[in-house]
Nucleic acid binder design. Structure first.
Length: 853
RNA sequence: GCGGACGUGGUGGAACAGGUAGACACAGCAGACUUAAAAUCUGCUUCGCUUACGCGAGUGCGGGUUCAAGUCCCGCCGUCCGCACCA
């Protein structure tokens, strides 16, 4: 038997699709649209298995929706700015632009080899001036609309990448890519006002019904809204007041100290005359913010000597400390401490000998005997020791206190967010230049629209440390657009998350002289189905939601939410091996006779590690190109879809891939080398069928329904299982009469249509070999006959006391009495009842009978 | 510490809405074909007992609700993920 030649076949169909423009789309108001998008890749040079999985998932959705009659937009492009290009420039003496474009060319070929149904006419790369010029304009519009501003602030500085990082890019105190411990620096930076949309971004999460709960929750926590109050403390002997944020203003009567952050202006003011305090502040700034450091760090404070007047209790003065656990970034950078009801405050109070006064009494507790030991009481209760709050529950006490503070002019209700404004300045070359000019006379001047884009210079030096744009001899020197005097350009570039915050809209109209036309985004947006990794849950996915709102405010588009549906796929994992010296590639390892593993070269023992995410460092990466070379794209795609549900991690196994390949090869042989003479394409349906053929027809219709349901529910692995079940049924069909031949052909044609979104090349090839003209991918999805998906005869389980004791075959919707008597008549059932009448018989129509003995 | 998800054969995983647990695969075993191997085909494959018919146990552990629980409720244990000095 000849083997299926995937190499020739896959290439052949790539050419056919391209020539016919099969996947080119345009707006068509007469048809429902469907926008499928996979997160576009960074052009690192080669695709990896994570990409293959991502795009196999997206292509299945795109092809399925196309079959269901949707006008499907399915584009692909390149997230082309970023640090690796600069590293390559430094290490290999290639220009970042050349390196990036070479990588794009290579990766485009790899993607084409997968047979993905992209409209390649819409391809874009974010490093092109035709792309980034629009985001320069957007930034200027943000500036005009008060959504962008420049301010000096403490920022996260990555000492390895030599650039600033946004809060979202600091993971556990370290840079998200470099892993270097992040330092605090005071710099002038551009910010986007994401906090202005804090409430909206939070509330709208509710409406994102087709997003995973996990991602919505992560964004919810990230935004971190808390309701509380600002409280004002007068400071003895000073005119300024200390403003504190609290969520527990009900415990204000238990306050025993105030604490401020090391970077708080008040601390700086005292430190000016207090060298010891200045030392303490410096020590706090050096402190790492990593998890381990925080766990072990002591709660340290420094008594400033200042006294804060309690806002409610006349005559009570509280000491003011600078404390290392108070963050300038959150709230007002100042707190009041109520040790009895906050663990951290309690630890601090014990360390510095401050009073601990309980003011919340737990339910059913005697106020006389209630004491605070080593643990603060944070549970529910009623206020006591609290004057006018006494007897009130916590929530009531908060309201009462807020009203008192407001009427006394000593505070007011307030809401604080964990979310910070998005710092977008990066001290890097390979990014989009920030289009402003610093003029000695006029200050910050936006570059006029007519002078856009501000293009990156090509001739740059990567050997000198620092920002190559800043080091460039001429680029930054320009004339002030307003007054004409000598001025300098901003040399920072945008965070590369800027580009990915709007590319989905550009795909709607990628050749436009504008960012995109309003009509095209109105037609295509929002993205109906977005697919990508969970790692962007609070980065790209939050920025894009904000950016869309900002663009709306500036009149670019009319929606708030860019992604109506989101699927976060699991990782691709693989086995790992290591010996005493480190990790080994799987092909350096073989199974030993004792069941363990040894190295191929010298037989030394090797231990099998965990199944882990493919990574270069663990040497468990499988190169997609090699797989496609060996087995073909269809096989790789089928395996990826069949092994695990999309959101779960997938274990790559050679055996699993082999299995997928054998299946496709078998399918091809069964049809193209069939000994049964199939009737020609479109042959009329015979009038009668043998029972076997009629059964097969039911199986066909059931499969259509099952596969469709599975795809709609994102159970692609189940869809594959159902297709394989139909294959088994087709392979097992007995008889070779005209009716059987017709039904067999019908079955295979349906099967091909169902499998085409997963394995398009082989499906097209077999379809053509059956005598069809035109593309299978343009044939509508088959419909099932509802009457054929329900069985006439149903096998009903018969239980005695909940244990299965037999089955009976009954006509569908048989009378309950018949089912009951048939069930009781089973020998097994009679044996157990032993002549006694059953106590009860539960009959669930068409499902089960349970006899209670 | 806070929040969340998950836990089913040797393995990946099925099981719509509480109703025959283990679909579909992978691996394994046996057989057919073959000089042989690969490929292909047929069968078996949750565990224990049994020649067999069967019987017993079984969805992390312990309880509960129900005629009936992988699924619902309560309490544990474990694994993974997110956030974290957040006032």
């Amino acid at each position: 038997m000849a083997r299926y030649n995937f190499r020739e076949t896959e290439k052949k169909w790539h050419g056919r699709w391209e020539q016919a423009g099969t996947f080119a789309v345009k707006e068509d108001p007469s048809r429902p649209k469907y926008y499928v998008l996979e997160m576009f890749p960074y052009p690192s040079g080669r695709i990896h298995m994570g990409h293959v999985r991502n795009y196999a998932l997206g292509d299945l959705v795109a092809r399925y929706k196309k079959a269901r009659g949707f006008n499907v937009l399915h584009p692909m492009g390149w997230d082309a700015f970023g640090l690796p290009a600069e590293n390559a420039a430094f290490e290999r003496r290639v220009h970042p632009a050349d390196w990036t474009h070479e990588n794009i060319t290579a990766m485009r070929e790899q993607l084409r080899a997968m047979g993905l149904s992209y409209d390649w006419n819409r391809e874009l790369a974010t490093c092109a001036p035709e792309y980034y010029r629009h985001e320069q304009k957007m930034f200027l519009d943000f500036l005009r609309n008060g959504l962008a501003y420049r301010k000096e602030s403490w920022v996260n500085w990555d000492p390895v990448e030599n650039t600033v990082l946004a809060n979202e890019q600091v993971i556990d105190g370290r840079g998200w890519r470099s892993g270097a411990t992040v330092e605090k620096r005071l710099l002038s930076q551009w910010f986007l006002k994401i906090t202005e949309y804090g409430d909206d971004l939070l509330e709208a999460l509710e409406s994102l019904e087709r997003w995973p709960d996990r991602v919505r929750l992560m964004q919810h926590n990230w935004i971190g809204r808390s309701e509380g109050a600002h409280v004002l403390f007068d400071i003895v002997g000073r005119s300024d007041r200390l403003e504190v944020f609290t969520t527990r203003h009900d415990t204000l009567f238990g306050a025993s100290f105030c604490a401020i952050a090391a970077n708080h202006p008040l601390a700086a003011s005292v430190a000016a005359n207090d060298p010891k305090l200045a030392d303490f502040i410096a020590e706090c700034n050096r402190m790492s913010t990593s998890e381990a450091a925080i766990e072990t760090a002591e709660k340290k404070g420094y008594d400033t000597g200042l006294k804060a007047r309690h806002p409610i209790i006349d005559g009570l003065e509280l000491p003011v400390y600078v404390a290392n656990f108070v963050l300038m970034e959150y709230g007002t950078g100042a707190i009041f401490g109520c040790p009895a009801h906050d663990q951290r405050d309690l630890d601090f109070a014990r360390a510095y000998g401050l009073p601990v006064l309980p003011v919340v009494l737990p339910p059913n507790t005697d106020a006389e005997t209630f004491e605070i030991g080593d643990e603060a009481y944070v549970g529910p209760g009623t206020a006591y020791n609290s004057d006018f709050l006494d007897g009130l529950a916590i929530d009531q006490a908060k309201s009462a206190m807020a009203e008192r503070l407001e009427s006394a002019g000593r505070g007011k209700r307030a809401i604080t967010y964990r979310l910070r404004d998005w710092g977008v300045s990066r001290q890097r070359y390979w990014g989009c230049p920030i289009p402003v000019v610093h003029c000695p006379d006029c200050g910050i001047v936006p570059v006029p629209d007519a002078q856009l884009p501000v293009e990156l210079p090509k001739d740059v030096d990567f050997d000198t440390p620092g920002n190559p744009l800043d080091n460039h001899p001429t680029w930054k020197h320009t004339a002030c657009p307003t007054c004409g005097v000598a001025a300098t350009r901003e040399t920072d570039t945008f965070d590369t998350f800027f580009e990915s915050s709007w590319y989905f809209a550009r795909f709607c109209d990628p050749k436009s002289d504008e960012a995109f036309s309003r009509a095209s985004v109105d037609y295509w947006m929002p993205v109906d189905q977005y697919i990508g990794g969970i790692e962007h849950a609070v980065l790209h996915l939050l920025y894009s939601r904000f950016f869309t709102r900002a663009l709306r405010k500036c009149g670019y588009l009319g929606i708030d939410e860019p992604f109506a549906g989101l699927m976060t796929q699991g990782m691709v994992c693989h086995e790992t091996y290591r010996d005493a010296k480190g990790w080994l590639f799987p092909d350096q390892v073989r199974k030993a006779s004792d069941g363990g593993f040894v190295a191929v070269d010298d037989g030394r023992p090797v231990t099998a590690g965990r199944i882990e995410k493919m990574s270069k460092s663990k040497r468990n990466v499988v190169d997609p190109e090699a797989i496609i070379q060996t087995y073909g794209a269809d096989t790789a795609r089928l395996f990826m879809l069949s092994d695990s549900p999309p959101e779960r991690d997938l274990e790559w196994t050679e055996a699993g891939v082999e299995g997928a390949w054998r299946y496709l090869n078998r399918l091809w042989q069964r049809i193209t080398e069939s000994e049964i003479a199939f009737p020609p394409a479109g042959a009329p349906r015979p009038g009668t069928f043998s029972p076997a053929a009629a059964d097969l027809e039911r199986a066909i219709h059931k499969t259509i329904k099952a596969v469709q349901d599975s795809i709609e529910k994102w159970r692609f692995n189940s869809a594959v299982a159902q297709i394989r079940e139909l294959s088994n049924a087709l392979g097992a069909l007995k008889g070779d009469g005209a009716g059987e031949a017709w039904m067999l052909r019908h079955g295979y044609e349906v099967l091909l249509r169902l499998i085409e979104p997963m394995t398009p090349h082989i499906a097209e090839e077999i379809w053509e070999s059956l005598g069809h003209q035109g593309f299978l991918c343009e044939v509508p999805w088959p419909t099932f006959d509802p009457s054929l998906v329900i069985d006439d005869v149903i096998t009903i389980g018969v239980q005695v006391n909940g244990k299965l004791r037999g089955t009976i075959d009954m006509a569908r919707d048989s009378a309950e009495e018949d089912v009951r008597s048939q069930a009781l008549d089973l020998e097994n059932v009679r044996k157990i009842l032993d002549g006694n009448p059953p106590r009860r018989v539960v009959v669930v129509p068409n499902r089960i009978v349970n006899v209670v003995a």
